[in-house]
Amino acid sequence: MISYRDARTIDGPALAAMARQSFVETFGTLYSASDLSAFLDEAFGPNGLPSQLSDPDFTIRVALAGEEIIGYVKMGPVTFPGEWRPDAIELYQFYVLADWHGQGVAQTLMAWALNFSREHGAREVILSVYVDNHRAHRFYEKYGFEDIGRIAFRVGATVDDDNLMRLVL
Rank of each mutant, 00 (worst) to 15 (best):
I2E: 08
I2D: 04
S3A: 15
S3H: 15
Y4D: 10
R5A: 13
R5D: 10
D6P: 14
A7F: 08
A7L: 12
R8T: 10
T9V: 15
G12T: 05
P13C: 10
P13F: 05
P13N: 13
A16D: 09
A16V: 10
A17G: 15
M18D: 07
R20F: 01
R20L: 03
R20H: 11
F23A: 03
F23E: 03
V24R: 11
G28R: 02
S32N: 08
D35S: 12
S37D: 15
F39E: 01
E42K: 15
E42M: 13
A43F: 04
A43L: 02
F44S: 07
G45Q: 05
N47I: 01
G48P: 04
G48A: 07
G48V: 04
P50T: 11
P50Y: 03
S51Q: 05
Q52C: 00
L53G: 10
P56M: 03
P56F: 07
P56K: 10
F58K: 02
F58L: 01
T59E: 14
I60V: 15
I60D: 07
I60Y: 02
R61Y: 09
R61V: 06
R61K: 13
A63H: 14
A63P: 14
A63Y: 15
L64C: 15
L64G: 12
G66I: 06
E67V: 13
I70M: 14
G71D: 08
Y72L: 03
V73S: 01
K74H: 01
P77L: 08
V78S: 01
T79V: 05
G82Q: 04
G82P: 12
E83A: 13
E83K: 15
W84K: 03
R85A: 13
P86S: 11
D87P: 06
A88W: 01
I89Y: 00
E90M: 04
L91Y: 00
L91S: 01
Q93A: 11
Y95R: 03
L97V: 14
L97D: 13
L97Y: 11
A98T: 09
W100K: 09
G102L: 04
G102W: 12
G102P: 09
V105G: 04
A106M: 11
Q107S: 14
T108G: 06
T108E: 08
T108Y: 05
T108V: 06
A113I: 04
F116C: 13
S117A: 15
S117P: 08
H120V: 08
G121Q: 11
G121Y: 08
A122I: 04
A122H: 02
R123E: 11
R123I: 10
E124T: 05
E124G: 00
S128W: 00
V129Y: 06
V129D: 04
V129H: 03
V129M: 00
V131G: 00
H134S: 08
R135V: 10
R135H: 12
A136G: 12
A136T: 06
A136D: 07
A136P: 11
R138T: 11
Y140A: 06
Y140E: 06
K142N: 14
K142R: 15
E146V: 11
E146L: 06
D147T: 08
D147S: 05
I148Y: 03
G149N: 07
G149W: 10
R150M: 05
R154D: 09
R154G: 12
V155E: 04
T158D: 02
T158C: 02
D160R: 11
D161K: 02
N163E: 03
N163F: 14
L164F: 01
M165E: 00
V168G: 08
L169Q: 09
